[in-house]
Design a protein around this nucleic acid. Structure first.
Lengths: 190, 190
DNA sequence: CAGGGACTAGATTGATCGCTCTAGCGAGTA
DNA sequence: TACTCGCTAGAGCGATCAATCTAGTCCCTG
């Protein structure tokens, strides 16, 4: 069971992910969420921008949970990295190339126009970086190098999502996964 | 000297790059381009979508010219890769984090909503991949591996742009450049 | 000089945008 | 039974959206 407020946030996040922030209308959100129109401005007096920022933070936090979910049961770090990219590729294909990164589209759109939302995106990325880096340090990689590897991994994932969605192919995700896995492998044996 | 038509396309490309497709209005385009409103629909009877597709292809082709411009004078492939990422970082910083990839924002936005524009983006990416792969084969890398390296490089660049714009930092670009350069280095000595 | 096609100019269209507003519903307390 | 208050409901605001339409200007060609 879900509250009206939760449904609005979740639906917004889904729509923003697929078609971006500007292309998603308030009316489209309440219709898709089966929520009363008046409720939106009751819960989000700050309007679309407040809702957008909260949707970014919520879906960012949800996506971050994939890190422990995939890395913890994996036998080793390199396998975990491979599984992460393979999982992303599988999910993208299952959703007909609609569900890629939950915040990348919005991040590119608003970085130059809304400081509030840009900050929300930056916070999510920083949080991902911290979460990923700790997995690398636990595996015995130095802190500075762990941070670099994580940023490289997220960048590779995001970029592969861009290519994969436009080309309608999971090839970029598999290639990016291979390259990142090999780089992590090398860092481990150093 | 530039024709009205060229000014419309160039201005559109610039605006789409910074704020995306949906957030950019027709009126904003003609105002920024100092073009007559009527001319837009004279040159682009297909409306915003036709203009968008052409802007994508034009700016994609322009960006592709950076490949020979940077790779040709460079002493070797690895140096060229480093210079490419360093140049991207410098330009991003110079423009206050506004000018990243000319088509990535639009590519993410429209991939699920406009097949016409998705194809334009896909064609540009395919063209970049072909141009980049030939540079790698010329350096003595096998064709399949050259394609993989190029896709990995473009993905790393695109993803680093996403992070860099949101975080307002060139760090991701420098890290991605290092990782890609090291990967290419390894492919050369194999 | 006359005619025609390329281009300019902007008013106007209906639809949709984000948002405000008032009215009322319904569960909990007094 | 009264009263409150969190939430629902949607009509309606001004602004802006992409797009169409007619009228007019300009230059090139015959």
């Amino acid at each position: 069971m879900s509250t009206t407020r939760d449904r609005i946030v979740d639906t917004s996040a889904e729509l923003f992910r697929r078609q971006g922030y500007a292309a998603t209308g308030i009316k489209q959100i309440v219709t898709a969420a089966q929520a009363p129109f008046g409720s939106l401005y009751h819960f989000f007096p700050g309007g679309k921008e407040q809702l957008g920022a909260e949707a970014i933070r919520t879906s960012g936090a949800l996506y971050e949970q994939l890190i422990p979910a995939i890395f913890d049961p994996a036998p080793d770090l390199v396998t975990a990295v491979r599984m992460f990219f393979a999982g992303a590729a599988a999910h993208l294909e299952e959703t007909d190339y609609e569900d890629a990164c939950p915040i990348a589209t919005v991040a590119l759109e608003v970085s130059s126009s809304s400081e509030t939302m840009r900050e929300a995106c930056a916070d999510v990325f920083d949080s991902w970086i911290a979460a990923g880096a700790s997995r690398h340090t636990e595996a015995g990689i130095g802190e500075a190098r762990a941070r670099e590897l994580t940023i490289a991994m997220i960048a590779a994932l995001e970029g592969a999502f861009v290519l994969a969605r436009a080309l309608r192919s999971t090839e970029p995700l598999h290639i990016a996964g291979d390259v990142v896995a090999a780089t992590v492998q090398r860092a481990l044996s150093a």
